[in-house]
Design a protein around this nucleic acid. Structure first.
Lengths: 342, 342
DNA sequence: TTGTACGCGTTATCAG
DNA sequence: CTGATAACGCGTACAA
């Protein structure tokens, strides 16, 4: 590995000169700069990231931590964040905690191997974040309100507990005996929509039958298929509507219903959440929920994060972001029957 | 930020003593170690990653570079690699190059910000890898044979050009006028299956009608829907079979066919590739191709990579891995008609 | 058992 | 415009 020292020696220059030349510092004559660059290329010089980081006390990196990158629901977020971070010149890396693999994420947080972290999973504890966030190492939490007294752990996109729109929709369409299927227990979506579900039911004076709350154990299509086959099929007669806490498991369950010749929505209404691409392809297409949070939102988010990194928090922008409530909308397709019409 | 210096001062010890104590070096008395650890916790000491990396000339990091983490096809690979790297104590991070965002990946490669890189995309050029790989910075390429003279760029899981099994299958079932739909042009899967397609056709003496080769422009479900609607629908009568280079676009296209009341496989046979979860949920379920490359394979792969990192290449293991040809199998579902039977 | 001294590769500050 | 020197935070021989 050739270093600036080597090229300094080769050129009979001081290391500092070489360093500056390499960074195109105006203080160095154009000629010298040219020479240095040339030699550098010739000697296949590449700068050492660790050394730069150490000296600058900056990594230029923003780390995004989430549970499962393959969930279609997160793919949009990933892309948006990548665009936003790139706009501001940051590097962007993803750490996945699927299967309990939190070590990498935690080490990067503890050892400050990034300038900031964006956490979109419950698998990293609020305590850890509280412990390690600081003025020069801000942590943004997405999807829930982190419990913390650390002012540098900021929460965004954490919908307040509100009635669950999918539930409201089913009720509006005349459903009364409504079941609920939970996804990965450690996900915010599951917890939140579960709470929303209970809220909606109670507000309409409807009882929640705990035996009609099914746990898929995970948030992937296969999990949806399995819970449908093993737990839901036998209870179909006890419900007129079934809410899934996300589309992934709903799509899997739809497959199961098809395999068992259960006609949706004649036999039972089904509704999902997130509007992932595959939900449009089920038979019949899945009615679901969509929520708007465009590229612009993520750009603002990263801009705000950047302001924290630069130690000049843009409190105004932060306020705007925190008051942001994403608009939710039912995507009406063909898995919910209007029971009022008969 | 408190450093070992600070805690050394506080305890009237030498930095080196503190350093060793922190690393539980036997040379330091148990009592001192306890003391140091205590003080460290008290002062909220956290070690500085960059400094450690610089000194050790190791990052303990393996970087995985791919185009789009949300593609269901890659999710299994990600998970397997994560498990495998964790087994050997490495940190594991993902860099996504979707939308041309290669900067991060390239910078990490150039500046050696990882101990090794696994590349599973065409978006990082072979030249770059060739230029930066070295004995102490191995690069493993997945999915294609990298063109390089650098012995530290190793290729794996690069199927030889062979007849395309899905095509063979269609032909066996009596199809003759076969169309082909390509996904993201920069993906290996697309290129390879395209070549296999041509090979199969020619081996059976069948002409390839170039106007029946459709470009979806991307590998996501939406891309499949769009190409079906805009290009394929009008050509349905000119084909009896249609091959998609991956399931994602096939699933999207199936949705389109359903929307337009095209009955599959009566009107046309359809076959995909990869057997992603969603392919089982289309109406009717998609016939597709699956290939086996289990956890064990990835564990071996990472073990081999590790041997390179440790500068003791396990050539035997490497050989075994390189000769590995994944078993391919048709997953027979309901989108291919047997034309011989009528 | 502990301390000293040095190096890892880079940048920044100053003096010349 | 260029050079010497001191950091950055840590690990490790070697000496005490």
């Amino acid at each position: 590995m050739t270093s600036i020292k080597d090229i300094a020696k080769e050129l009979n220059l001081a290391v500092s000169t070489v360093s500056m030349a390499l960074n195109d510092n105006e203080k160095i004559s154009k000629e010298t700069r040219r020479l240095v660059h040339e030699k550098a290329k010739e000697m296949k010089y590449v700068r050492n990231g660790a050394a730069v980081d150490l000296q600058k006390q900056k990594t230029n990196l923003i780390l995004f931590v989430l549970y499962d990158a393959s969930r279609s629901f997160f793919s949009y977020t990933i892309k948006s964040l990548q665009i936003a971070t790139a706009e501001l010149g940051y590097d962007f890396l993803i750490s996945t905690t699927y299967g309990g693999h939190r070590n990498t994420a935690e080490r990067f947080i503890k050892e400050r191997r990034a300038d900031a972290v964006i956490v979109y999973t419950k698998t990293i504890s609020d305590e850890l974040l509280t412990q390690y966030a600081s003025a020069d190492f801000p942590v943004f939490v997405l999807g829930h309100d982190a419990v913390t007294d650390n002012p540098y752990v900021k929460s965004f996109l954490a919908p307040e507990v509100r009635p669950l729109l999918t539930c409201e929709y089913l009720i509006e369409k005349g459903h009364r005996r409504i079941g609920f299927v939970t996804g990965f227990a450690e996900s915010f979506g599951t917890v939140r929509s579960m709470n929303g579900f209970r809220l909606s039911m109670s507000r309409h004076g409807l009882p929640v039958d705990e035996s009609l709350i099914f746990d898929a154990g995970g948030s992937q299509m296969e999990d949806g298929y399995n819970v449908a086959e093993k737990q839901i099929l036998s209870r179909l007669d006890d419900m007129d509507g079934l809410i899934f806490s996300n589309d992934d498991i709903a799509v899997g369950a739809m497959k199961c219903f098809n395999d068992h010749n259960i006609v949706i929505p004649d036999r039972i209404s089904v509704i999902g959440q997130h509007n992932i691409p595959a939900s449009a392809t089920t038979m019949p297409p899945l009615t679901t929920l969509t929520s708007t949070s465009g590229q612009e939102l993520f750009s603002k988010l990263v801009k705000c994060l950047d302001s924290y990194i630069r130690m000049e928090p843009d409190l105004e922008l932060e306020k705007e972001l925190q008051s942001h409530q994403s608009e939710q909308m039912i995507v009406e397709r063909q898995t919910v029957k209007d029971l009022n019409k008969r």
